[in-house]
Protein backbone atom coordinates (compact mmCIF):
# COMPACT_ATOMS: atom_id res chain seq x y z
CA UNK A 1 0.00 0.00 0.00
CA UNK A 2 2.69 2.47 1.02
CA UNK A 3 4.65 1.70 -2.13
CA UNK A 4 1.69 2.77 -4.27
CA UNK A 5 1.67 6.13 -2.44
CA UNK A 6 5.43 6.48 -2.91
CA UNK A 7 5.19 5.64 -6.61
CA UNK A 8 2.48 8.27 -7.06
CA UNK A 9 4.68 10.83 -5.28
CA UNK A 10 7.54 9.88 -7.59
CA UNK A 11 5.37 10.48 -10.64
CA UNK A 12 4.29 13.89 -9.27
CA UNK A 13 7.93 14.85 -8.60
CA UNK A 14 8.89 13.84 -12.14
CA UNK A 15 6.17 16.08 -13.59
CA UNK A 16 7.39 18.96 -11.41
CA UNK A 17 10.94 18.42 -12.73
CA UNK A 18 9.66 18.78 -16.31
CA UNK A 19 7.71 21.95 -15.59
CA UNK A 20 10.21 23.96 -13.54
CA UNK A 21 12.55 26.33 -15.37
CA UNK A 22 14.63 27.26 -12.31
CA UNK A 23 17.41 24.68 -12.35
CA UNK A 24 18.07 25.08 -8.62
CA UNK A 25 14.52 23.90 -7.94
CA UNK A 26 14.95 21.12 -10.51
CA UNK A 27 18.06 19.81 -8.75
CA UNK A 28 16.32 19.91 -5.35
CA UNK A 29 13.34 18.03 -6.84
CA UNK A 30 15.74 15.45 -8.25
CA UNK A 31 17.13 15.00 -4.73
CA UNK A 32 13.59 14.52 -3.39
CA UNK A 33 12.98 12.02 -6.18
CA UNK A 34 16.06 10.05 -5.13
CA UNK A 35 15.02 10.11 -1.49
CA UNK A 36 11.49 8.92 -2.36
CA UNK A 37 12.93 6.09 -4.41
CA UNK A 38 15.18 5.18 -1.46
CA UNK A 39 12.04 4.93 0.69
CA UNK A 40 10.44 2.78 -1.96
CA UNK A 41 13.46 0.46 -1.96
CA UNK A 42 13.03 -0.05 1.80
CA UNK A 43 9.40 -1.12 1.32
CA UNK A 44 10.57 -3.49 -1.43
CA UNK A 45 13.08 -5.16 0.99
CA UNK A 46 16.18 -3.73 -0.71
CA UNK A 47 17.74 -2.05 2.31
CA UNK A 48 21.30 -1.99 0.91
CA UNK A 49 20.07 -0.34 -2.28
CA UNK A 50 18.10 2.19 -0.23
CA UNK A 51 21.23 3.12 1.73
CA UNK A 52 23.23 3.59 -1.43
CA UNK A 53 20.51 5.52 -3.21
CA UNK A 54 20.03 7.88 -0.24
CA UNK A 55 23.77 8.48 0.13
CA UNK A 56 24.86 8.53 -3.50
CA UNK A 57 21.69 9.45 -5.43
CA UNK A 58 20.23 12.01 -3.04
CA UNK A 59 23.56 13.11 -1.53
CA UNK A 60 26.55 13.07 -3.86
CA UNK A 61 24.61 13.62 -7.11
CA UNK A 62 22.84 16.65 -5.67
CA UNK A 63 26.15 18.13 -4.52
CA UNK A 64 27.66 17.54 -7.97
CA UNK A 65 24.67 19.15 -9.67
CA UNK A 66 24.77 22.16 -7.35
CA UNK A 67 28.51 22.60 -7.95
CA UNK A 68 27.84 22.55 -11.70
CA UNK A 69 24.98 25.04 -11.37
CA UNK A 70 27.33 27.41 -9.56
CA UNK A 71 29.43 27.46 -12.75
CA UNK A 72 26.74 27.27 -15.44
CA UNK A 73 23.98 29.46 -14.00
CA UNK A 74 20.63 28.58 -12.42
CA UNK A 75 18.20 29.70 -15.17
CA UNK A 76 17.04 27.68 -18.13
CA UNK A 77 16.19 29.50 -21.38
CA UNK A 78 12.59 29.35 -22.58
CA UNK A 79 12.47 26.98 -25.56
CA UNK A 80 11.73 28.48 -28.98
CA UNK A 81 10.11 25.38 -30.48
CA UNK A 82 6.97 23.67 -29.22
CA UNK A 83 7.90 20.14 -28.11
CA UNK A 84 5.27 18.30 -30.17
CA UNK A 85 7.64 15.83 -31.84
CA UNK A 86 9.28 14.71 -28.54
CA UNK A 87 5.79 14.29 -27.04
CA UNK A 88 4.72 12.01 -29.90
CA UNK A 89 7.94 9.96 -29.75
CA UNK A 90 7.68 9.56 -25.97
CA UNK A 91 3.99 8.60 -26.10
CA UNK A 92 4.57 5.94 -28.76
CA UNK A 93 7.57 4.49 -26.90
CA UNK A 94 5.65 4.49 -23.61
CA UNK A 95 2.64 2.80 -25.19
CA UNK A 96 4.87 0.11 -26.69
CA UNK A 97 6.52 -0.49 -23.31
CA UNK A 98 3.15 -0.73 -21.53
CA UNK A 99 2.02 -3.23 -24.16
CA UNK A 100 5.20 -5.15 -23.38
CA UNK A 101 4.43 -5.29 -19.64
CA UNK A 102 1.15 -7.17 -20.22
CA UNK A 103 3.09 -10.44 -20.59
CA UNK A 104 5.26 -9.81 -17.51
CA UNK A 105 4.85 -11.77 -14.29
CA UNK A 106 2.70 -9.79 -11.84
CA UNK A 107 4.30 -7.81 -9.00
CA UNK A 108 5.51 -10.11 -6.16
CA UNK A 109 4.70 -13.32 -8.02
CA UNK A 110 6.70 -16.15 -6.36
CA UNK A 111 6.60 -18.16 -9.62
CA UNK A 112 8.31 -15.41 -11.66
CA UNK A 113 11.34 -16.63 -13.64
CA UNK A 114 13.62 -14.23 -11.73
CA UNK A 115 13.06 -16.29 -8.54
CA UNK A 116 13.75 -19.66 -10.21
CA UNK A 117 17.32 -19.34 -11.49
CA UNK A 118 20.39 -18.79 -9.24
CA UNK A 119 18.65 -16.75 -6.54
CA UNK A 120 17.41 -19.75 -4.47
CA UNK A 121 20.95 -21.09 -4.36
CA UNK A 122 22.31 -17.75 -3.16
CA UNK A 123 19.63 -17.56 -0.47
CA UNK A 124 20.14 -21.15 0.74
CA UNK A 125 23.91 -21.60 0.65
CA UNK A 126 25.56 -18.17 0.82
CA UNK A 127 25.26 -17.73 4.64
CA UNK A 128 27.17 -20.99 5.21
CA UNK A 129 29.38 -20.86 2.10
CA UNK A 130 30.62 -17.28 2.52
CA UNK A 131 29.88 -16.87 6.22
CA UNK A 132 28.16 -13.47 6.04
CA UNK A 133 24.50 -13.19 7.01
CA UNK A 134 23.86 -10.42 4.45
CA UNK A 135 23.30 -12.20 1.14
CA UNK A 136 23.62 -9.03 -0.90
CA UNK A 137 27.17 -8.54 0.38
CA UNK A 138 28.05 -12.18 -0.35
CA UNK A 139 26.81 -11.95 -3.92
CA UNK A 140 28.38 -8.51 -4.48
CA UNK A 141 31.85 -9.30 -3.16
CA UNK A 142 32.15 -13.01 -3.88
CA UNK A 143 29.81 -14.64 -6.41
CA UNK A 144 29.73 -11.60 -8.68
CA UNK A 145 33.04 -10.07 -7.67
CA UNK A 146 33.94 -9.50 -11.31
CA UNK A 147 30.94 -7.15 -11.66
CA UNK A 148 32.21 -5.13 -8.74
CA UNK A 149 35.68 -5.08 -10.24
CA UNK A 150 34.17 -3.77 -13.49
CA UNK A 151 32.31 -1.13 -11.47
CA UNK A 152 35.59 0.03 -9.93
CA UNK A 153 37.10 0.23 -13.42
CA UNK A 154 34.20 2.40 -14.60
CA UNK A 155 34.55 4.74 -11.60
CA UNK A 156 38.29 5.01 -12.20
CA UNK A 157 37.75 5.79 -15.88
CA UNK A 158 35.11 8.39 -15.05
CA UNK A 159 37.45 9.96 -12.48
CA UNK A 160 40.26 10.15 -15.04
CA UNK A 161 37.80 11.62 -17.54
CA UNK A 162 36.63 14.32 -15.12
CA UNK A 163 40.23 15.23 -14.25
CA UNK A 164 41.19 15.32 -17.93
CA UNK A 165 38.22 17.57 -18.72
CA UNK A 166 38.56 20.01 -15.84
CA UNK A 167 41.96 19.86 -14.18
CA UNK A 168 44.58 19.64 -16.93
CA UNK A 169 42.80 21.91 -19.41
CA UNK A 170 42.50 24.73 -16.92
CA UNK A 171 46.21 24.56 -16.18
CA UNK A 172 47.07 24.69 -19.88
CA UNK A 173 44.75 27.63 -20.56
CA UNK A 174 46.31 29.56 -17.69
CA UNK A 175 49.72 28.76 -19.19
CA UNK A 176 48.48 30.04 -22.58
CA UNK A 177 47.32 33.22 -20.92
CA UNK A 178 50.73 33.60 -19.27
CA UNK A 179 52.47 33.12 -22.63
CA UNK A 180 50.25 35.76 -24.27
CA UNK A 181 51.16 38.24 -21.60
Amino acid sequence: MIDIVLLTFLAATAIAVVRHRNLFAVVMLAGIYSLLSAGLFVTLDAVDVAFTEAAVGAGISTVLFLATLALTGPREAVPVRKPYLPMVVVSITGAALIWGTLDMPRFADPQAPIHQHVAPRYIETSPTEIGIPNMVTSVLASYRGYDTFGEVTVIFTAGVGVLALLGIRRKRSSKDAAEKE
Partner: peptide, 27 residues
Protein backbone atom coordinates in the same frame (compact mmCIF):
# COMPACT_ATOMS: atom_id res chain seq x y z
CA UNK B 1 15.71 -11.97 -4.33
CA UNK B 2 19.20 -10.58 -3.54
CA UNK B 3 20.46 -10.67 -7.13
CA UNK B 4 18.67 -7.56 -8.49
CA UNK B 5 19.75 -5.70 -5.35
CA UNK B 6 23.39 -6.43 -6.16
CA UNK B 7 23.02 -5.40 -9.80
CA UNK B 8 21.35 -2.13 -8.82
CA UNK B 9 23.97 -1.34 -6.14
CA UNK B 10 26.54 -1.52 -8.91
CA UNK B 11 24.34 0.50 -11.26
CA UNK B 12 23.78 3.34 -8.74
CA UNK B 13 27.50 3.88 -8.26
CA UNK B 14 28.25 3.63 -11.98
CA UNK B 15 25.37 6.05 -12.57
CA UNK B 16 26.85 8.70 -10.33
CA UNK B 17 30.23 8.27 -12.04
CA UNK B 18 28.68 8.86 -15.47
CA UNK B 19 26.68 11.81 -14.12
CA UNK B 20 29.92 13.34 -12.82
CA UNK B 21 31.51 12.92 -16.25
CA UNK B 22 28.47 14.47 -17.95
CA UNK B 23 28.53 17.44 -15.58
CA UNK B 24 32.26 17.90 -16.20
CA UNK B 25 31.49 18.01 -19.94
CA UNK B 26 28.77 20.60 -19.28
CA UNK B 27 31.24 22.75 -17.32
Amino acid sequence: NPLPHVLILTAIVVGVATTALGLALAV
